[in-house]
Design a protein around this nucleic acid. Sequence first.
DNA 1: CTGAAAGCGCTAACAA
DNA 2: TTGTTAGCGCTTTCAG
Lengths: 332, 332
Amino acid sequence: MAENTRIEEVANLAGVSPTTVSRVINKVPTVKEANCIKVQEAIRKLKFKPNVIAQRLAKGRSDIIALVIPRYEGIFFSFYANQIIRGVGVASENLKLDLLLHLSNDKSFINTALIGGVLFADVLSNKQELSNVLESGIPCVIMNHKPVNLDVNYIAIDNRVGTRQAVEYLIHLGHRNIAHITGHLISQAAIDRLEGYKSALQENKINVKEELIEKGDYSRPSARKAVLSLLKLKTPPTAVFAASDDMAQEAISVILEHGLRVPNDISVIGFDDNPICLYGSVGLTTVRQPLIEMAAKATSLLHKAMLSKTTKSSTKIVLPTELVIRDSCRQI
Amino acid sequence: MAENTRIEEVANLAGVSPTTVSRVINKVPTVKEANCIKVQEAIRKLKFKPNVIAQRLAKGRSDIIALVIPRYEGIFFSFYANQIIRGVGVASENLKLDLLLHLSNDKSFINTALIGGVLFADVLSNKQELSNVLESGIPCVIMNHKPVNLDVNYIAIDNRVGTRQAVEYLIHLGHRNIAHITGHLISQAAIDRLEGYKSALQENKINVKEELIEKGDYSRPSARKAVLSLLKLKTPPTAVFAASDDMAQEAISVILEHGLRVPNDISVIGFDDNPICLYGSVGLTTVRQPLIEMAAKATSLLHKAMLSKTTKSSTKIVLPTELVIRDSCRQI
DNA sequence: CTGAAAGCGCTAACAA
DNA sequence: TTGTTAGCGCTTTCAG
């Protein structure tokens, strides 16, 4: 922290008291216009920047928010995590909040002393951290995870419904042999998608075959491995539902490499609506989840919670998913 | 910030003065062991957490570092950016530094009041921010960019040398028709790789053909577009050098989709040594750049600069790149 | 509408 | 080795 000009010097130059300078800085409307102008000029001349630390100590609150996101590779390097980080980064800048990035794992610990609010991008990686935050009384918002038995703000999509949109679409196209490449099952989203896949099949009287369920972790290599196994089956699937578009794209690559065509031989459907869907060899049909919107709303919700003194009841938002039909699935 | 127990209550419970408590917190060695234990017990009982804001105001320094990284999509979503963010995140946690994430664009502004040091992941996106930091006297380290005419700490790789390793390898294999898919030319890394590509050709008496240079932005879609153009050429290249592995992988996909083989028909070489190299249909030959190491060293260098009162001369580190030969290039 | 004075919670001289 | 006394730079009562 560089030693800068203080509010007092500004006050001297402007010929007013420090208090008045503070009022101008904080836009208190009761300052006489003439004084206001004098102060602003002095601020400009001295290139004065208020010391944020001192402001915060005096005001008793922090404008720093923390984003807690799992550091596991499959998740951290996913489109999902990237979008969340970038979305929260932009949203917090707009709200004039500083963003602290906290990469969680099973033994990470979050120091709540510095921050005014916390955003969890997922929570399963370390439940202890959520408890810490909850105990400390700091407002928080959880993204993409619906905690059970806990009165917390959250904003999520319904992964089961989204998955159902995908799987039922495939069923309507006549597919019965539908494989699923899961996401990293440490995330609730991946678990919900897997459950949604199973129940969609069951409701349509289609047996769930374990051999058609391949564990992935949202990464391309994991999808490649999964598809390779799937292709070796006596009766390979006619359709593949991947828990992320990245995995779906990799699935398509592998299928093409084996001399098969998409969607003619195998239909593929993804999840995310990653822009890469549009640019592949075949437009990828997928389930759109509004990640940027989720990030923005979560940040703004957190901001409101930080401003309101009263701990009002928690807000729960579920954003809709949307089936985006392109060219990677066909009727059989 | 939740209103917590203060140091005074701890002092009362332990039967010592606030100063002694402060000493224990800051591990000042001159505290009698008996007192030290009493204080630690009191801290535990009261679940006392020092108020970091107050600490920082009193100490006059900050343990928060900022990571400034461009928010442009091609770059932000790249393996490079992901590795840097994750690497710095882990490194700063190890050093007990808090990490503020700042997504820069051409009009972003960094508030230096809160932070004790700054890490630039690239600087071209906003030179103004670098000047701000330099003026404020806050220590900083620049990654992957060698600023000209500026006495700043930096840690980078030599992108020209790395590129030369790749291109000369192709030349030694007999290739003369070598295409290049560039990175986002807003980054110095991309510019240097392009220059390195050109000079490697020239030094080997191979004409640089503009039609073989395709502008990418590190993203897969941009690589797809590039390869599509390349394949339409009257004389398509026999080898492609992509500025990132993601782009190289996409290049391979496109080539395969066109019924050509890698490396039999076209050789492909990437840059990064992304783990995905290992899992594709063909092992990707690439230039390894030590991103995690760069992130870790940069963070530790910054930490040292923050601790040393004296503004000693700047440190400049260039990390070596390494050609990693796998199966995507062949002799012709 | 303005200013003096009293903190915010902690650390750093300085004495003891 | 410990405690007392001043601040760090700002905001916020509360008089005026």
